[in-house]
Each structure stands twice: as C-alpha cells, then as structure tokens.
Design a protein around this nucleic acid. Structure first.
Length: 366
RNA sequence: GGGCGGGUGCCGGAGUAGUCAAACGGAUCAGACUGUAAAUCUGACGCCUUCGGGCUCCGUAGGUGCAAAUCCUACCCCGCCCA
C-alpha cells in the first residue's frame, strides 16, 4: 500500500522532502513528533500541541497497555478519541522499555516479560500481543517489537539480538491487517556496520512501510551515530520514510536530515523544558552553523532580572509577553505554569526548526 | 517573682564527652537529561588549601578534663505554666 511520497531530494545532501499518508491524514517530512508516552504531552492539551504546529505525536504501547489498558482505549474508540487528537499517532512498541526498564524485564525467545513497576504484575509482550495492542490503540504508525540493546554491546550479543529482532519483525508483519495502519521495522546492530547492514537488509526483505533506526543516541559517541546513518542511507529504500528513533538535540536533527532521515521524536524539548532548560533560536545564524541555537538554564541566577520576553518571535502571546525573569521566578517557586511555558517554548522551537529545515531543503540550502 | 523546657551552620532540626565542620530536610549555587518509571536525578554548600591538610565553629564568658556542641558555674535571650 502506498503511504509515502518523496517530493524532493536536496542537491547538496541526502536530505529529502516528503509526505506520509496515514489513516488520520497526511504529514510532511522531515517531521518532529512530540512525545505523549502516556497519552498526554506532559502539561499541555492536545489543542495546544496542535496549535504549536505538531502534525503527528508519539505514544507508547507498553505504558498504555498497563494504564489505562488497551482494552479501555478500544472502548473509547481509539487513542485519538481517548486523548482528543485527530491527527496521526505513532506508537512505539515497548522496545525502548526493554532498554530503559532493563532491571525488570526478561528477554525470551518469543517476546519480553516485564514486571510492572505499578503493581508488580507480569506482562508478556510478544510480537502478536504488541500487534493486538496497537490495533486496539488504533495508531497510524505501529512499531515492531524489538530489543533496543544498550551501548556498548558486544558484537556477538548484537548478532543474536538482531536475528531475534528480525524474527519478531516477520511475525509482526504476518499479523498485520490490511486496515491502513502502517508498520515500521527497526534497524538495530549497535555501532557495527556489518550488523546494521544485515539488520536493515533482513527487514527490507520482509518489507515495511517505513524503516526506523533504533538503538542510537543512547550514549554512543555522536560521530558513530552519524556514521551509522550514513551507512544506512544507501541501503534503505528511497521510497520509504526513515525514522531516527529518540533523537535528538537540535543540531543532531539537522545532521541526521542531511543524511537522509525523515522522522524524529525526542523527549528533550518536553522533559528538559520541565527541568528548566530552555531552547532558543539564535537569529540570523544558518542551520549549518552549530550555534544556530542556544540552551539556557532558566532557573540560574543570571536570569533573575532579565526582563526580555521568553521568545519575542514566538507565535504564542504568552511566550511573547512573559519575561525570562518571570519564568525564572516560576521555576524557583515551583509553579506548574513554569513547566507549561517551558514546554510550549521548547516544542515551538523544535517544530519551527523542522519547518525551517523543510524550507532549507526546498531551496537546496541543506 | 517561682517552676519547667529551650538556645546548633541561611532556615528547620539531629547529636548530649573522643569516630563532629557536626546526621537529615529545606533554601541556595551549579550540572545532567536523547523511541519518558523523570515537576526527576547528581554535585557543591564555615573559611583557606600546593587537595596531604590547615584554621575557625554549636547563645556569651569562665571552668573541669588528655579531649567539650556534649559536663560544671555565671550571665544574656526565647517559649510554656503558676503567682
């Protein structure tokens, strides 16, 4: 089924413009997906997220399965109806939780057993189960169950891991219904060229609607990350979207786009915003220059009496009106509004960055 | 006037002779965060340092003792109760 249009390729890099067609509308690429792990962009309403310019958001199979339960979301109609988001939703499979919740899970031949951190209950995620849950959620883009192996991992270990991932991926593909939900495979293999290639080729052979690069930006040197993306650029089919999972910092997104990546998601703008780090665009500095943005710790003393607006160029009145000093104060006093404003600001910066990247590609400047 | 309790670092609050520059919170000052167990976590937090250590310090002033935030005496404050 046709779900991706490649609209343009940059003449100066591997960057591309495209669009992905889903059950809940079309979104342009490159794209940045704000993260709503538990069916909420923390501290914001879906209207606010939409108003910021988000076209697609990401949620999580594992966390929603445990709470409120995929059954309940099915009763609500779909995840879209449950959380009032009418656009596309991508759901991660729980593969990242294999990595982040390593202490309480066990990888078996046919799936992963998790012990819930909420009530100690045991859950067994298999490819079939993950497919069923994502069907209940009604997500537009489903991810295959994979093992996101930690960095560093030994070649020998990863060899087994990517073989298992490929088997699971095949099972997921076999379970896939012809209902318009898209399914992406996930390339693993650590920082080893041969394994990355092998993983990608085995997935391409199965055939997916898109290909994700997983297991990156998890602690490896960033140059290794870029090398792997470069390696896979000619391997992955041109006519399918490529998704770099979990990335990244603004300059990393730019670098990845130049190497052919179309889709991104990252907790950085939302989480770091809540923790008091504000991303700001340095005006009139080209995206090719690493200094095109800066990140500040708004709670630091230096902003206590800075009465400039949070972002004079924002489309949001509140970010234009409220001052850095005020936001500083909100963080120092622990007011919830602090997190909201910081999240709004950071997501706007990220989503504007993506728009700027698209324009740059359109003009062959990136 | 009498009785009792109490005065510890910016704040709250442990400690009641040596292992105390003094637990634990908070505040403060920084840092981390990449398919979110994260409104979380880490470090610093008397002064100086060649990072080995040195100096000052637990209301004030004396005293005992090898050694005191810890014991004794006096004084100054604070709280509660009785007159």
């Amino acid at each position: 089924m046709h779900s991706f249009n490649l609209l343009k390729k940059s003449i100066i890099s591997a960057a591309r413009l495209g669009e992905v067609i889903t059950n809940h509308g079309v979104f342009k690429t490159p794209v940045f997906m704000p993260i709503a792990t538990r069916a909420a962009i923390k501290s914001l309403t879906t209207d606010e997220v939409k108003n910021l310019g988000a076209e697609i958001i990401l949620s999580n199979t594992y966390h929603l399965m445990m709470r409120p339960g995929n059954e309940l979301i099915r009763q609500a109609g779909s995840l879209h109806q449950f959380m009032d988001w009418s656009g596309p939703i991508l759901t991660d499979s729980g593969g990242y939780q294999v990595f982040s919740l390593a202490k309480q899970r066990k990888i078996l031949v046919d799936g992963v057993k998790f012990k819930s951190e909420i009530d100690g209950q045991e859950y067994y995620l298999t490819p079939k189960k993950v497919m069923e849950i994502q069907a209940d959620l009604g997500s537009d883009i489903m991810m295959v169950l994979d093992e996101c192996a930690p960095y560093p991992s030994e070649h020998k270990y990863l060899e087994e891991s990517i073989k298992r991932n490929a088997i699971w991926a095949k099972k997921m593909k076999d379970e896939k219904k012809d209902n318009g939900q898209l399914l992406f495979g996930i390339v693993q293999g650590g920082i080893y060229d041969d394994l990355r290639k092998e993983s990608a080729e085995s997935l391409i052979k199965i055939g997916f609607d898109g290909y994700a690069l997983g297991g990156l930006t998890i602690g490896e040197p960033i140059d290794n990350t870029y090398q792997i993306i470069e390696l896979l650029n000619p391997v992955l089919p041109l006519d399918k979207p490529r998704y770099l999972m979990g990335a990244g910092r603004p300059e990393q997104i730019v670098e990845a786009v130049k190497r052919g990546i179309d889709m991104f998601d990252c907790v950085i703008p939302t989480r770091e915003g809540r923790h008091g780090r504000l991303f700001l665009r340095n005006k009139n500095i080209n995206l090719q220059d690493k200094n095109f943005y800066r990140a500040i710790q708004i709670a630091n003393n230096e902003f206590s009496a800075n009465f400039s607006p949070i972002n004079p160029d924002s489309n949001l009145p509140e970010l234009k009106k409220y001052t850095l000093a005020y936001l500083h104060h909100l963080f120092k006093t622990g007011e919830p509004l602090a997190q909201r404003l910081a999240t709004l600001n950071n997501l706007e910066i990220y989503l504007n960055l993506i728009k700027e990247i698209r324009e740059a590609i359109a003009q062959d400047n990136l």
